[in-house]
Amino acid sequence: MILIISNNNERTTTEITKWLSIMDKKFIRVHEDEVFEIKVDNKKIFIESSRNKFFLDEITSVWYRRGGLRFIHLKYENISINEHMNEVQHWLYDYVIKTLESKKHINKESNSDVNKLLVLEQAQKFGLEVPIYFLAENTKDVHLHNTIIKTIAGNPILDNIDQQSDGIMYTTVINKKEKNNFFITFFQEKIEKDFEIRSFYLNGKIWSMAIFSQNDEQTKTDFRKYNLKKPNRNVRYNLPVEIEHKIQLLMKALDLNCGSLDFIKSGNKYYFLEVNTIGQFLGLSLTCNYNLEKEIADYL
């Protein structure tokens, strides 16, 4: 039995489950609004929600996509007993999650959020080129027009930022200095690029796509500012063997067996930017005819 942990309407998950259905493989899809209770039957642990029920020992592989397992937290009137039972429940839930993560898996809930600063340090350790970066709480020493600002925390979406729509924090070039100090922020050297590269990694295999975003002012700094009227040209691309080898070393060091990685090609150099453990890859798969959905289904 395959266990998939995802969000309710996550499109990528749906595409993989279609392949699993075609392959006649049994799977359980857990949604983020499910709450489970841990139970025991004939000395075997199983967890159950209003929608799903499964024994731990019947799960053969796990794909952590998004969300996470949520458990009913029992409370007791006696304060001392409640404190003790909180600890007991914590370790029981921890046992369930770690047992599932010990099985054949793609990604793990416990390390789905990687620390960008640690990732960049590891990337440099394995010989990947990384644009010069620094942390600062003001723009006093920032070189205008040659420095970009990015978030440390992945790619956050700010819900209902203007009461009408969500907001995305894009990569931005610093064109003016701020008068006041602000919270410590991530700054990075702006690299003049030939093109960008999005790579998908799964258990040692790598599939890449070149994104010609620099030809459009709208997407020049951040290709996620999609120009729907005039989309960027995207084509299959093969990274040099030595770069792929360094990616494999990096992912193993980070204990990640799946993820999307971003690079910039500039002259003869390939600059590593970041890794997203649960990044989108359907566009890459469709554009380059990689059929990554089946690759994931086959592995599971």
Rank of each mutant, 00 (worst) to 15 (best):
Y271A: 08
F187R: 14
L228M: 04
I47R: 02
I168V: 10
I16N: 11
F183L: 14
K190F: 09
G204N: 08
T12H: 14
S49P: 04
F46V: 03
F212R: 12
F126T: 06
N78H: 14
L144Y: 03
I243K: 06
I47S: 02
K269P: 02
C288I: 08
D162R: 11
E192R: 08
L249E: 15
N227M: 06
M1Y: 05
E58I: 01
P156N: 10
T60V: 11
Y170E: 12
E101C: 11
I157G: 07
E178M: 10
T17R: 07
S112I: 13
T139K: 12
W63N: 09
N181C: 14
K229E: 13
S49R: 00
G167P: 05
F126P: 05
D162E: 01
H31E: 05
P240V: 11
K39L: 07
A253K: 08
M251A: 13
T277F: 04
S285P: 13
L254E: 00
T221L: 15
N289F: 05
G259W: 08
I211R: 01
F187Y: 02
F263K: 11
I132D: 09
K26Q: 13
N78R: 10
E295H: 12
F36Y: 12
A123S: 11
S80C: 04
E274Y: 01
I5W: 01
E293Y: 03
D159Y: 11
I148Y: 10
K265C: 09
P156R: 10
S199E: 05
E137S: 13
D113N: 10
E274M: 07
A153C: 04
K75Q: 14
L239N: 14
F186P: 00
G68Y: 00
K252A: 12
T171M: 03
L282K: 15
T147M: 02
F71W: 01
S266H: 00
G154K: 06
H90W: 09
Y170N: 09
K225L: 11
K225G: 00
H145A: 11
N82Q: 06
F126L: 05
R65Y: 00
G67Y: 04
Q163N: 09
Y237M: 10
K103Q: 05
I45P: 07
A253L: 05
D216G: 05
S50E: 13
I157D: 10
V40C: 04
N180H: 09
M209F: 01
N7S: 10
L20H: 10
D24K: 09
K125H: 07
R51W: 00
Q89N: 06
N155L: 13
D162M: 01
